[in-house]
Amino acid sequence: MYNESKQIRVAFLCNAASWGGLEMNIARLAQWLAENGHQVVFLCPPQTAVSDFMATHLMPNLYLYPSKSRLKYFDLLTASQIGRILARHQVDSLVIGHSKDIQLGITVQTFFYNKLKLGYLQQMQVGIAKKDWLHRWMYSKLAFWVAPLPSVASVTLARTTVRPEQIRLIPLCADLAKFKDVRRKRAAARAQLGLPPDATLLTIVGRYDAGKGQIFLVEALAQLKQRGIEAEILLVGEETKGEEGTYLPMLKQRIQDLQLLAQVHFRPFMQSIELAYAASDIFVMASLEETFGMVTIEAMASALPVVGSRAGGTVDLLEEEQAGLFFEPQNSQSLGESLLKLLQNRMLCGEKSQKASVLS
C-alpha cells in the first residue's frame, strides 16, 4: 500500500460518529500521509468528532463528506457520491476503517469506480468465525487486509476466509515524541487534571464499553483495599455514540457498591492525552481482545509499566512481560495479583518502566 519513493493517491473511509482509538488511528494515518506529500481524500459523515479533526488537520480540498444513509447494504446513493469523489481525485486505493463499511466500498467499486483497490485497516480482533458465503464474498473483494501484529493476522487467517497473500503486516503509525519524559511533569499534570498529588494512580484510557474491562480494574482495586494496599484509579474516556446509558451507569453503580467513589476519578478524552500518562503510576490494558492497543504503546513511551490482559495484540506488545505483567482476561483477582506484584516491589516496577520506554 505504501511506497516511500512514490506518491500515492489514497482515500480513507471512516463512517463513525464516535471519537475513540479506532477513529484516532485512521485519522492520524491520513494526516501523516498528507503531511508527507501524498494525495489524501478523507470520507466521513459531517458534524462528527472525526470530521472536526480532519477539517483542522487536512487541506479543505482533500476533506469531503459523503451523504449519510441508514441503508446497510447496496447504498447506491452514498456509493455514487463517493465514486464521483474518488474518480475526480483519481484515487487508486480506498482504505476502510470499520468492517461494517466494507460492503459500502464494494458497492462503490462494483457500480461506480471499478478500477478501485479496496483495503481494510484492521483495528479490532475477529472475535468469532466469519466464513459464511456473505463474508467469503466480501473478503474476496479486498486487495489487501492490513493487520498491525503477527498474532492479529494469525487469528484473522484462522477465523475468516482472508487469504495469506491479502495480509499486509503494518504497525499503526504513532508520533511518540510528546510522551518521552512526561513523568517528570507528574505533579503539574495531577494539578491540571485535579487529581490527588500523592496517590498511587492506576489508569485505563478507552471508551466506556464492556470489552474495555474497566469494571475488572475497579473490582481489583476493591481486593487490594481489603489487603491494606492504597491506590486509586484514573479512567479517561467517553461513552460510545449511540450506546449512551448502557455500560457507564453499571460501572458507576459497581463503584458505589464497592464504596470506591472517592478512589475512582473520571476524566473525558483529551487532546493532550500525555497529561493522563504523566499523572499515572501504572497503566492497565484490560480489554478482552485488543489488536494493536495504541494507548498501550503511548503508555510504554511514557515509561509506564503495563499490566495487560493475556489476549490479542497485548501479548506481542509486552514481549513476554518485559514491559509489564499479564493477567488472565476478565479476571479481577488475576489483575489484582499482578498489580500487587508491582505495588509491593518498587525495583520490579522500575525495571518494567524502563523496559517499556525502550521497547516503545
Rank of each mutant, 00 (worst) to 15 (best):
K241R: 12
H57F: 13
A55W: 02
E274W: 10
G206Q: 05
Q344A: 08
E321F: 09
Q7L: 12
L343A: 09
P197F: 01
S18M: 09
I96L: 08
Q192F: 03
C349R: 15
T291D: 14
L325K: 03
T296F: 02
D181C: 10
L142W: 08
G211K: 10
H89Q: 12
M300S: 08
G20W: 03
V306C: 12
Q223K: 14
G37Y: 09
R28G: 04
L275P: 00
L169P: 04
E4G: 02
A30M: 07
A303Y: 03
Q109K: 15
E165K: 11
Q354G: 06
Y120V: 04
A222I: 00
A158Y: 04
L248N: 01
P329V: 09
F283K: 01
L317R: 14
K212F: 04
G242A: 08
T78G: 04
L58T: 04
E4K: 14
L13Q: 02
A87M: 10
T107S: 10
G194F: 10
L288D: 12
D75Y: 01
L71F: 11
E165D: 15
R207G: 08
S5Q: 13
D181S: 14
S99F: 09
A279L: 01
A231M: 07
M250H: 10
T161F: 05
S280Q: 03
M1T: 11
L348S: 08
P150G: 07
A147S: 14
T246W: 06
A231I: 07
V182M: 03
A79E: 03
E23C: 04
A220S: 12
A189F: 04
A276I: 00
P197G: 05
V40Q: 06
M59P: 10
F179A: 00
A158F: 04
L43H: 06
H135R: 14
Y247E: 06
A16S: 15
K72L: 15
Y113F: 14
A286Y: 01
L121M: 13
A147E: 12
